[in-house]
Design a protein around this nucleic acid. Sequence first.
DNA 1: AATGAATGAGGGTTCATTCAT
DNA 2: TATGAATGAACCCTCATTCAT
Lengths: 210, 210, 210, 210
Amino acid sequence: MSSDTGPAPHARSASPALTRAERQRARILDAAERCFIERGFHAASMAHIAATARMSPGLIYRYFSAKHEIVRAIIERHLETEGYAAMQSLNSREDFCARMLEAFEHWRRRDDPSMSAALILDLTAEAARDPQILDIVRGKDQIIGKELAVAIQRAARKEGARLSTEAAWGRAMMLQCLYEGLAFRVVRTPELSASALRPLLEKVIAALTT
Amino acid sequence: MSSDTGPAPHARSASPALTRAERQRARILDAAERCFIERGFHAASMAHIAATARMSPGLIYRYFSAKHEIVRAIIERHLETEGYAAMQSLNSREDFCARMLEAFEHWRRRDDPSMSAALILDLTAEAARDPQILDIVRGKDQIIGKELAVAIQRAARKEGARLSTEAAWGRAMMLQCLYEGLAFRVVRTPELSASALRPLLEKVIAALTT
Amino acid sequence: MSSDTGPAPHARSASPALTRAERQRARILDAAERCFIERGFHAASMAHIAATARMSPGLIYRYFSAKHEIVRAIIERHLETEGYAAMQSLNSREDFCARMLEAFEHWRRRDDPSMSAALILDLTAEAARDPQILDIVRGKDQIIGKELAVAIQRAARKEGARLSTEAAWGRAMMLQCLYEGLAFRVVRTPELSASALRPLLEKVIAALTT
Amino acid sequence: MSSDTGPAPHARSASPALTRAERQRARILDAAERCFIERGFHAASMAHIAATARMSPGLIYRYFSAKHEIVRAIIERHLETEGYAAMQSLNSREDFCARMLEAFEHWRRRDDPSMSAALILDLTAEAARDPQILDIVRGKDQIIGKELAVAIQRAARKEGARLSTEAAWGRAMMLQCLYEGLAFRVVRTPELSASALRPLLEKVIAALTT
DNA sequence: AATGAATGAGGGTTCATTCAT
DNA sequence: TATGAATGAACCCTCATTCAT
């Protein structure tokens, strides 16, 4: 444990100017994220997280006061980083479709801890039980929904159509259903490929953006 | 606690001719289901399940060799009883829509343990981690998917259209996305009402059944 | 651990008709008492108490919800059983003196866990810090003080003197000071013998009961 | 926390010519004393002591090799500074009484860390368990006892009486009982006032000094 | 001299599982 | 068949102590 303080294999957050504390927090979160994806919030133990972060269990508590704080932080960060958080760069029907397929592929390949279907499922299940987590999830979800609705209006206008805020809001909701439903499909239908998915997605999205 | 005071309020599985062992198993599963919905698979303790089933913890082990066997059984049963398991009675576009709204309402009201958004989320998250559970979930999911595809073909034919098996399979998949996405929405968008949802659902389903 | 469920060497509370739960609680308290005397409330660990009671740590929690409940129970029991709790059988100057010497001897010999100078000191120190414990200690102390005051009035009347309630209360307080001060002396002056103490005690008690 | 902002409010030990090391030790002891009074020897953490002393935990170990060394030092210092350490200036019956009332008032008001009932109780309880601490406590106690005995002889002679060394020793012991018993009373009888205590104390002390 | 990050053993507590009754 | 007392490993977390800086 003495040496090797380099970044872990899949480390995220490689920004340049971070204090030591910020780097440690990020390191813990990276480790926790991987553990939570592998085992879930409850089954992942602090010892496991510590081992993954290659530090002692006690040290974690210098940066997070309790395990549930890590859970909270992971959930917040995850909802921010999640592909669909960057909805503001969506401008056309094609963009929506591309973004979803991109997320789908990441989920499927399990190559990017910041894009994990298991985590989204777990996190939402947890929100259904824990009011504190529910607050966080709903807060982020509202922001995402609003941005998505704006993007839909933008895309409609580009095609010469008009969409009331309310209509856009409803369609955003359906797009979110689709998106999140794909998280289920990734787990449940391993044989589904992106290429088979694309035309289906295009069809539905077309119906929702006109 | 001394004697059996009859079936619990929300007891399921009241079939007529069951052996004692089957009835006991069902009783345990009913209790476990409620506990799992309330707390999740990990946070629900055997003691809690036993208390809910009004039996001793020890007795549970006469019917299930371990907690994870209960989880397995719950997941199997849940996927069978889940609203969309009865897809064979679906005959028209309107049926699809009605069935989804029905599920949505149950999830929202949390009045029927056999229809729980939290459980579906949890169960799928668990499947993403545990290969044994994954097998079960995928097995059930394939059956559901197939039946749904058949129902879609049936509905299309009724309207005079033709749909290849492959095309039907793809549309079934999108319907499932929508359905499961609603499980997310129930948790994340409490302000969404069935009446606001219906026209949106109709629009998408229309696109998927023509 | 399998056999030997007999009473521990210094077991107290051997009443005849106790439920199993009551016996277990007593067994835990007996063990805790010994541990607390040996190490103090904080340094005595649940593992140590469990080992002393010859049971597993987990089992203790069937009978006490937390360590501080054991501390509470020990303190309550101790203040009840403590020699000076039986103040009502005190009738004369000689009785006061005898009772104190008796306690002194028990403290010195450390042969009776229910009479421990270390415990009284610790318990009172703890009361100075923990409001919950303070309440318990003050509650018991008031009862003891009241009974002691009545005993002093009784003894005075026997000698033909009159003592106002207030005066009796004050003298009771001084007797308590003396008594508790002896707990210090037991620790700090090992060379002090009961025979050397008696005349001194008689002198002071005489001054306080006339 | 960045720099040294001068002595803490209640700092003790302001002697003129102290080495840096001595000043640091005193600073640590002042902080430890306050922590020990507030929380007790075990519950007070090194981190807490360090924060109170406004230094880093690591630095403490340059001046004390272990926590128990701080405890030892605090106990030694406390028994030296404690009110009754200055027994040599006691010359008359009135002096004894005044000194006790003074201590009582300090204990009650909790305004002077060098006069703490909680600490005396804790320290003596600790001595009952730890042989090393017992040695320290007994050593100091003997000195105090001897000085008190001499003071009693002095006071007696002033009134024209004669007191053997042995008799004076016994009476000193009783005075100490009284004194230490008051430490209990401060905790257990908050409603006891100095004015109510004085006549009682005078009565007992009179009996012990004639 | 001084910091405070880091360690890891040990604390209180929970809980799946077993077993005597 | 049924109980629930009992076990002990594992959980989350704290803290005395060390050490690179």
